[in-house]
């Protein structure tokens, strides 16, 4: 897929992606804020879960996506895969950050502390740092191609490492806090809460896809501008 056609294709698909994102987001907010009951135990603060959990899912999904794109780029040398990975990574980091912030806002009413070293929050914090390292590495070289490939290798290693991080943080949590404190998100999610959760998850995915499309198109167009400028300069 050579760049010019890809940029044009993005232009055509974008309006639909934006429309879908807005619609899903509206439905998600409507259900999570208005059309769902408060939790008998947590009260209204359960609504924070509808932001917190989908953000966690997105942070993990985007990290896996970036690793796969990096792998494809390394294996087949498609510049498009690298552009797409570079476009997606900051979005994933933003979702991880949103997850941490909403987790802290949810922890304060529940446990009275802005930050609790809960197993899942700690794993998300480490994932956020993995994102920072990957994005920093991607931009640390004069030649963007070098940065893309190095970041792809780091993403693959990070992906292999994620389950190990999860496992060791869980072990660490039980080591230092044997009595299991209030389980995050309750024993099982009540069906009336499942709908807003899934809607918000879908909304986040739609928003991500639209933004990812814009950023990938920007990256591809930017490389075309650079090439044109180089070619133009030489003439």
């Amino acid at each position: 897929m050579e760049p010019a056609r890809f940029v044009a294709l993005c232009g055509r698909v974008l309006p639909f992606a934006v429309a879908l994102a807005v619609a899903m987001l509206a439905a998600g907010l409507l259900f999570s804020l208005a059309l769902s009951p408060a939790d008998y135990q947590q009260g209204e603060s359960v609504r924070i879960m509808y932001v917190h959990v989908p953000a966690a899912w997105m942070a993990l999904f985007v990290y896996a996506l970036v690793a796969v794109l990096g792998g494809v780029g390394l294996a087949f040398g498609h510049a498009l895969a690298f552009h797409a990975a570079r476009a997606a990574a900051p979005l994933g980091a933003a979702f991880a950050l949103l997850c941490l912030v909403s987790g802290s806002l949810w922890g304060k009413p529940m446990w009275g502390a802005w930050w609790v070293w809960d197993a899942r929050l700690t794993s998300m914090l480490l994932l956020f740092f993995l994102y920072l390292g990957q994005i920093a590495l991607s931009g640390a070289f004069d030649r963007q191609a070098r940065g893309d490939r190095a970041a792809a290798v780091l993403a693959l290693v990070g992906c292999v490492n994620l389950p190990v991080v999860k496992f060791s943080v869980d072990w660490w949590h039980t080591l230092h806090q044997p009595a299991s404190v209030f389980k995050f998100g309750g024993p099982s999610i009540d069906p009336s809460m499942l709908l807003p959760l899934l809607l918000m998850a879908g909304a986040f995915k739609a928003v991500f896809f639209a933004l990812w499309l814009i950023r990938t198109r920007t990256a591809v167009a930017a490389s075309r501008v650079a090439a044109a400028r180089l070619a133009g300069g030489a003439r």
Binding site: L126, F129, L130, L132, G133, Q134, A136, L137, A140, F141, R146, G147, A150, V153, L154, V157, G158, N161, V164, V165, F167, S168, V169, W171, W172
Partner: peptide, 25 residues
């Protein structure tokens, strides 16, 4: 990975520490 990068030492620590967390734990 950080060979030839700008500010390689800081970048290296930022990349490797999250990966080294399980070993530390």
């Amino acid at each position: 990975l950080a060979l030839g990068a700008r500010r390689a030492t800081v970048l290296l620590a930022l990349m490797v520490l999250p990966l080294a967390a399980p070993v530390l734990i």
